Amino acid sequence: MEVIWFAVFTALLAGYFALEGFDLGVGLLLPVLGRTRENRDRMVAAMAPYVLANEVWLVAVAGTMFGVYPLLEGEVLFGLYPLVVAMLLCWVLRDAGLWFRRRLDGPAWRGFWDAAIAFGSLGLSVGWGMALYAAATGFGSPPVHPLGLLLGVVVTLLLAFHGWTFLGWRTPGRFGVTRSGRVLLASGIVAALPALGVLGGAMPYLLEHSAPAATLNVLSVMVLPVAPIMLGAQVWVWRTFRPGKDAYRLPSFF
């Protein structure tokens, strides 16, 4: 049962980086590709239908970690408390930018919230790299470490590339690139590689520090039957808003 839950946790974390990763990547690219108001609106509109569905993966990752690896919860919250708080604030800032950017009109209002989206996406991307480095070192290093910052830069670049690939799939040719669904899948796997690498190295530790078998059995009965619903909803979103559908004509996030 420990191996099954490790596989579930790995799939959830990889799914978060592969799916929410392109949302963060598009946010990172707003100052680069969104030189005009129309382009920024199109970039946000491209990812808008996927944002809420993709964020569910992070909730699932947190719930699984706290349920399956209860000892890890204390290490994460204690050792990475400032980083976790900073990442939560960046998450709130990014989502606030998505929701509020069209509540009023005017270049100053739009510019402020577009900057909030970009800054929040940057903070989350760098923060994830630092968190992965801390996890790889057994949470023995301080949250701010040169190698952690370097990994944060790597994660940021990977997510930006993934976001660019997503734009090439969702809005073919508009931002200088056209990509197929297979290429988008490949870039999603590449975006998840840092997380997969850390989990691969931490596999013996996680298996050893899993929750008791009785707890895992209860979690299996309560959680695993819901998994098909989560996956089915994700498939529905992707089929409904795939390229060629009229929904992407919306100028912004609503």
Rank of each mutant, 00 (worst) to 15 (best):
M1V: 15
M1H: 14
V3F: 15
F6L: 15
A7P: 15
E20S: 13
G21N: 07
G25S: 09
P31M: 03
A53Y: 07
V61D: 04
T64N: 03
M65N: 08
G79E: 03
Y81C: 00
P82E: 03
P82T: 03
A86S: 13
L93E: 06
D95Y: 11
R101W: 05
R102I: 01
G106C: 09
R110Y: 06
D114M: 00
A116K: 00
A116H: 02
V126K: 05
W128R: 09
L132C: 06
A134C: 12
A134N: 10
S141A: 15
P142K: 08
G148Q: 09
L149N: 07
V153R: 07
L157S: 03
L159I: 03
W164G: 12
W164L: 15
T165V: 15
G173E: 02
R174N: 00
R174W: 09
G176H: 04
R179Y: 04
S180K: 07
G181Q: 12
I189R: 09
P194C: 13
G197N: 06
A202K: 13
P204Y: 04
L206Y: 12
E208Y: 12
A211K: 11
M222G: 01
V223R: 02
L224I: 12
G232N: 06
V235K: 05
R239A: 12
T240R: 13
G244A: 02
Y248F: 01
Y248C: 04
Y248T: 09
Y248W: 07
